[in-house]
Computed example of a mutant assay.
Amino acid sequence: MEKIYFICTGNSCRSQMAEGFAKTIFPKDWEVQSAGIEAHGVNPLAIKVMAESGVDISNNQSKTIDAKYLNQCHVVLTLCGDARDRCPITPPEVKRIHWPLIDPALAEGTDAEKLAVFRQVRDQIKGNVIDLAKQLS
């Protein structure tokens, strides 16, 4: 079974959304997980915008990197510069990819303005996951 890992700083937004999409888009013979350098809890706005796309991440848990899983992965994706810079070293056969996504949790303004940022990042992640699944199949 092929394994993929989506990693960001807090495993609260970007990596959770990527995991949610990948579990629905990738073939069933792929194991999909996400983690963070730290565990900040799943952001309620990430849950909301993913539900709008028909993907339920409400039962997901925020977690930190599992070194054993990381080293067994076929592909490891970092979703922010912090995760890219702080991600543990992987064996040379692990394909590492970086997607420099903005952190929607840092969005300011009204609730509607914050949601707009979450939706923008969600849509970017969905497109990236679709493209990645095509590349890896």
Rank of each mutant, 00 (worst) to 15 (best):
Q120P: 02
V117T: 13
N43V: 06
A67C: 00
L77T: 09
D29C: 03
K3L: 09
L70K: 04
K114I: 14
S53D: 15
M50Q: 00
K28D: 15
E2F: 11
A133R: 12
D111S: 01
K23M: 03
D111H: 13
D111G: 14
S15T: 08
E52V: 08
A46W: 01
D29V: 07
D103L: 06
G81N: 13
P100M: 04
D56Q: 08
S137R: 15
Q61E: 14
G54L: 03
I25W: 07
I65V: 15
D56K: 00
P104W: 01
C87R: 04
A22M: 11
R96M: 11
T90W: 06
V49A: 08
K63D: 04
G10V: 11
D66H: 09
I4D: 07
V55A: 01
G36A: 02
S58Q: 09
T64Y: 01
R84Q: 13
T24P: 00
L115M: 11
S62P: 10
T64R: 14
G127S: 13
L106A: 13
Y5D: 02
I47D: 01
T24R: 14
I65R: 08
I57A: 07
E108I: 09
K114M: 13
D66Y: 09
N11Q: 12
L106S: 10
Q124K: 11
S58T: 07
D56A: 03
A67S: 08
S53A: 15
V49Q: 04
G41T: 10
G20K: 07
S12E: 12
M1C: 01
A116I: 06
R122A: 13
A51Q: 10
Q33F: 02
E31N: 08
G109S: 12
M17H: 00
R96H: 11
N60V: 00
A133I: 01
I4Y: 07
C87W: 04
V49S: 04
G127M: 12
E113Q: 15
H98R: 03
Q135L: 07
G20Y: 02
V129G: 02
R119F: 12
E113D: 15
L136F: 08
P104L: 03
I125K: 01
R96E: 11
A35E: 00
H98G: 06
L101H: 05
T64G: 02
H98L: 03
D56P: 07
A35I: 00
K134H: 14
S137A: 11
Y69W: 14
D123Q: 10
R86S: 12
V76K: 10
N60Q: 15
K95M: 12
R119V: 08
I57Y: 04
L79T: 03
L101P: 05
E31M: 12
T9P: 05
G36V: 06
K95W: 02
K63I: 05
I97N: 03
R122Q: 09
R84W: 10
D56R: 05
K3C: 08
L45S: 01
Y69F: 15
K68W: 08
S62A: 14
K114V: 14
E38R: 13
A107P: 14
C87I: 02
G109C: 11
